[in-house]
Design a protein around this nucleic acid. Structure first.
Lengths: 220, 220
DNA sequence: TTCCTAATTTAGTCCCACCTAAAAGAAGTG
DNA sequence: CACTTCTTTTAGGTGGGACTAAATTAGGAA
């Protein structure tokens, strides 16, 4: 049985490892967890003791297979709860993160499986991120940011890179949602902003900042 | 912000106060919380510091208005989650207590209210206990145990006194559920057992033990 | 190679929530 | 009243998870 703090460290390290494939540094964890490096070192020793990660002084850490398993189950629970909050309880997608952050620590496996069934075995959460299955397999979708799209290409929105409340509220404001279909019409070299056309015919100019944070998939 | 441990103590004291109206003793709390009296004294001082209860050495404790409020919100959340687990996720009533025990500590008030709405504002939980409303008002139902019913009287099952898994499983076994209508047909002085007749015509003999743990309401 | 700087770890505290052992109060009994 | 017994509190200690301040190490620059 892991404590909430331990689970949060595991999840944090998992997230950092997802792309970088290098060992995760103490400082990076400290920053992400809003705590001090000394506290992180403490925790790393404990988690290493429990064989959830490999720890060598000054060398950063990587999760063990067991640690990875724990992390993926947490991500699974987090994303399932987010679906529940948005689809069943009518929360908007920018409100659900913090609540799911608490709900993901509820331990019952049976609860997770029944929730999954109740929700109809969803594949993606409200932000477009894939939900790991019971065995922890994650189906990543090939996707590019809107910034990387070619002029003239059409795709649809499958996720956000920055899921801060302010960004999500901005998207609500301009009525871009998950699944929105859009075509890149123009790219302005001046400031990196892009002009898009939505399925309903609306034309919008989005800043480079926005274009970098919107994930698009071209086929599917 | 209260810790999970603090909340559990508050709820425990609340439950003890519900019937007895006397101050709750340190030992009673220790027993209910599966801990030692010394630990309880520790916690009582902290909670008293936070003005959640009145504490005088050797005199037992009572919750303050603020403490009562906290307790009732916890009970509200616990029972709403139990309804969710049984009605939506298809758990049976003997499985939900421990999970609800974790879920009740999720802090978001907005979550509680949206859950309440999603469930259709239920008044009673799966064990027949009343769910406090948003302001903390609890509508107690007048009820008697089956043991106290008069021969010939008809009523229906509105709750259980002992909600242990074994008792609830027993009830499932003999197909008595919340809302079952029954008539007391006979009382055996020898061992205190009772004979009842159910709405579907089945006649059953229940031990005194069972009769004492089934709550019945005659009208309504 | 040596030095410097940034990253990391160690050492020493703190608070929370528990523990054991021992002291002290409450309350009934002869 | 004095005694006994049970309950409760105090005193002192532990591990988890955080902190600050000081020491150590890694790794690049001179």
């Amino acid at each position: 049985m892991l404590s909430v703090a331990e689970e949060n460290y595991i999840k944090c390290i998992f997230k950092k490892s997802e792309r970088s494939l290098a060992a995760v540094s103490t400082n990076a964890i400290a920053e992400a967890m809003q705590t001090k490096a000394a506290s992180v070192t403490d925790m790393l020793k404990r988690l290493s003791e429990k064989e959830l990660l490999h720890y060598k002084k000054y060398k950063g850490v990587r999760l063990t297979a067991a640690g990875n398993e724990v992390a993926k189950q947490l991500v699974r629970k987090h994303r399932l709860w987010e679906v529940f909050l948005v689809e069943k309880l009518d929360f908007s997608w920018d409100e659900v993160h913090d609540i799911a952050e608490e709900l993901e620590h509820i331990s019952s496996d049976e609860l997770t499986e029944k929730l999954d069934k109740f929700l109809g075995y969803p594949k993606y959460d409200p932000h477009g991120d894939p939900i790991p299955d019971q065995e922890g397999n994650i189906k990543y979708r090939s996707k590019v940011t809107l910034k990387e799209l070619e002029v003239g290409e059409t795709g649809h929105v499958v996720g956000v890179r920055d899921s801060s409340a302010t960004f999500l509220q901005y998207l609500d404001e301009v009525r871009i949602t998950l699944g929105s279909t859009l075509t890149l019409r123009n790219r302005f070299a001046f400031d990196g902003s892009v002009q898009i056309e939505l399925a309903d015919g609306r034309a919008l100019v989005l800043s480079e900042q926005v274009a970098k944070n919107l994930y698009i998939t071209v086929n599917s």
